[in-house]
Amino acid sequence: MTEIIVVTSGKGGVGKTTTSASIACGLARRGKRVAVIDFDIGLRNLDLIMGCERRVVYDFVNVIQGECTLRQALIKDKRLETLFVLAASQTRDKDALSPEGVRKVLDDLTADGFDYIICDSPAGIEKGAHLAMYFADRAVVVVNPEVSSVRDSDRILGLLASKTQRAEKGNGGVKEHLLLTRYSPRRVATGEMMSVADVKDILGLDVVGVVPESVDVLSASNAGVPVILNEESDVSRAYEDAVARLLGETVPLRFVDEPKKGFFSRIFGG
């Protein structure tokens, strides 16, 4: 059975594409057949994060408008056998996406036997974001522990609960998960940043992952290698845990507490 997962947030720049790429890679590494789709028409970026930007010939809109086949537009990942990328169109505006067109592509991927379809949503609550979530079975809501991001994701939760196929049909709705990114245990300890518990409490969602703030995210995007593939990084381990939880495994949260300090720094602060 195919599961459609939307990665969404409302606010821009919180790590949707980084998360989409890493979750897609993580699932594919566990042998699942995965397609990851960029819904950000006009502002294509998933291809860069995945490192396949020079191999984009056809895109999502080409498929929808019948200018190529789905198979021609799917870019096979060079590192993982079972991972495919469908790039967003760079030139057309977002009106090129139609609900029927998106449904057809998702149906064809389902018929093709994909285990997971990851929909990388654009920021905002316009058409692209709406279509990215409309057909989803589950949603990963990416949140930074910061006021505007939390508020915007609550708005997205409202839309997931009303403007999706599952909500309209009344069959249980979309299963929502919270994924915190750019988390700094040190700043949480000093009271400068809201904690996992705070955000979880305000939004009332299950936490599927907590990704620490790290320079590794920028180096991964610089290199075009999804950060989950950098085995040395805590970010990779955090995404690996999130993938395990998405697959139903119980994994304790890591990277949420500050490393223990010595006697002197505890007395004198710092």
Partner: peptide, 13 residues
């Protein structure tokens, strides 16, 4: 400041 953020968000949300 984290506590202030949490309380503001609780009310507005």
């Amino acid at each position: 400041s984290a506590n202030i953020a949490r309380e503001r968000l609780r009310i507005i949300v």
